[in-house]
Nucleic acid binder design. Structure first.
Length: 354
DNA sequence: TACACGTGGGC
DNA sequence: TGCCCAAGTGT
């Protein structure tokens, strides 16, 4: 009988998917792919990765770009702090590490947006270090292999110890890829395909007869629902947008000014009042554009969009870093959240300035 | 430690 | 339809 790493890696070599970053040697591209893949499925990442590499082929091209531009290439991928952090991290590598990605775990791990997973992944894939990765796939596979009965977050230490014993020092990156790929293709969340699994001989969960019971499922509380109103404020054939503050939801993206409405009967009134309070100028709703629904990770929103006219137009003539007036084609230059694009789609059907 | 942080796909 | 979740990190 072969040992665990041999069985796993042999399975991987026969069954691995062809992916744009698979087999890549450039540490920058490996790092980028790992950041894009955080909490995001492979199929979703592929087109974003390709577009990004075309515009930003190396680390200095990222470091030299504006935040607006990198966010535009991240637009639609979600979790935008990943992009802001990666942008900053690239600048740190250029300025503090002579453009060379640090190949020591302690140094690389300090970069913004690099946590335990990404550090272990990049160090093993790009630099051949024997650092085991523990992501969602590995946690699930390991939970079943050792029949771990406690909540999965408590298993990291146990899992890491076992993985450090198993990881192949000759091919640590391939070992890491292999166990993640096994989780992704065979050891599925709801219905593990144990018949296809190369390591059932080692799996206590399989021998128990119900591997799908691991890891233990946790129940979550329902998420809140908000009602919001957004204004499309027209003035001289352009409409008003503002930049969201960094380190907030959708930080760094641009948006139509919007407010949460608590009195659902007088949304327009509240919009007018709060826009004046937040932005400092008076608007007049002209007509309703439509309503869109959107779900974030921790709340849902119903957003009502209104065409508005600027009443006192001697304000905010000139764009600043925080706000601007753009024509409809400006949408393709500024990064916007998905929920605003949903409104733009309705506007498009209504021929914009109507 | 638990929660904030996006989006699209699966069932 | 509505809920769960996916190659996690920062606070």
């Amino acid at each position: 009988m072969s040992d665990f790493p041999t069985l796993l890696i042999n399975w991987y070599r026969k069954n691995k998917r062809l992916l744009p970053w698979r087999g890549e040697k450039d540490p920058y591209k490996i790092w980028l792919s790992e950041v894009m893949l955080q909490q995001t499925q492979v199929e979703t990442v592929i087109p974003f990765y390709k577009n990004w590499i075309q515009r930003f082929p190396d680390i200095s091209s990222v470091a030299e770009a504006s935040q607006d531009e990198v966010l535009k290439y991240w637009e639609g991928l979600g979790y935008y702090s990943r992009c802001r952090n990666f942008h900053r991290a690239c600048q740190i590598v250029i300025n503090n590490y002579d453009g060379k990605i640090p190949n020591q775990l302690e140094d690389f791990r300090k970069l913004p947006g690099v946590g335990d997973y990404t550090a272990a992944a990049v160090l093993s894939f790009a630099f051949g270090k024997s650092t085991p990765v523990i992501d969602g796939n590995v946690s699930r596979v390991m939970s079943r292999l050792v029949k771990f009965s406690e909540p999965v977050e408590k298993g990291r230490t146990v899992f890491r110890k076992q993985l450090e014993e198993w990881i192949d020092p000759e091919n640590p990156g391939e070992f890491n890829q292999a166990i993640m790929e096994l989780g992704s293709l065979v050891c599925l969340r709801n219905q593990p395909h144990c018949i296809k699994c190369p390591v059932t001989d080692f799996c206590v969960g399989f021998k128990s007869g119900s591997p799908e019971k691991y890891p233990r499922k946790v129940s979550r509380s329902p998420i809140p629902h908000k009602t919001m109103a957004a204004a499309v404020i027209w003035n001289n054939s352009k409409f008003f947008i503002q930049k969201r503050p960094s380190n907030s939801l959708l930080g760094g993206l641009w948006e139509l000014p919007g407010v949460e409405v608590t009195n659902k009967k007088s949304k327009e009134h509240q919009l007018v009042k709060d826009i004046k309070k937040c932005i400092g100028f008076e608007i007049q709703p002209v007509n309703k554009i439509g309503t869109v629904q959107h779900a974030y990770s921790h709340f849902k929103v119903t957003l009502h969009g209104y065409h508005c006219r600027l009443i006192n137009n001697n304000l905010l003539k000139n764009p600043t870093k925080k706000h601007g007036w753009i024509s409809s084609d400006g949408i393709s230059h500024y990064p916007f959240p998905r929920v605003n694009h949903k409104l733009f789609e309705i506007l498009q059907e209504q021929n914009w300035e109507q």
